[in-house]
């Protein structure tokens, strides 16, 4: 079981939360996102990606996709906001 699934189980809403997306923001300097499907747009001010249910947008300054794997990525930079539409 993944770390996030363990937390979800602890929360008690594993059906809804598990398997979707998970975000960890490290002091606003970097952000780890798990559960992405596709990248939509990359720029230094905005990174847009699709998740299972929605479109996840990360805004900030000097953004850089530091590490991108199949379903996870790390974005570095001055993270301003993260929201899902």
């Amino acid at each position: 079981m993944s770390f996030f699934n363990e937390i979800a189980s602890a929360i008690g809403d594993s059906v809804r939360t598990a398997g979707n997306y998970n975000i960890i923001n490290y002091n606003g300097d970097s952000i780890y996102i798990e559960g992405i499907k596709r990248l939509v747009s990359i720029s230094e001010e905005k990174v847009i990606m699709t998740v299972k249910k929605g479109v996840l947008t990360v805004t900030g300054v000097d953004l850089c996709v530091f590490d991108l794997e199949k379903e996870s990525l790390i974005i570095k930079g001055n993270i301003r906001a993260t929201y899902v539409e």
């Binding site: 990248l39 747009s41 990359i42 230094e44 590490d67 991108l68």
Partner: peptide
Amino acid sequence: NQTRLINRLKDADIRLIDVKK
């Protein structure tokens, strides 16, 4: 259309590091 390339590489299980534009 670089995001298409990125997605293609990602889908091919290629780890992308330090992507900058």
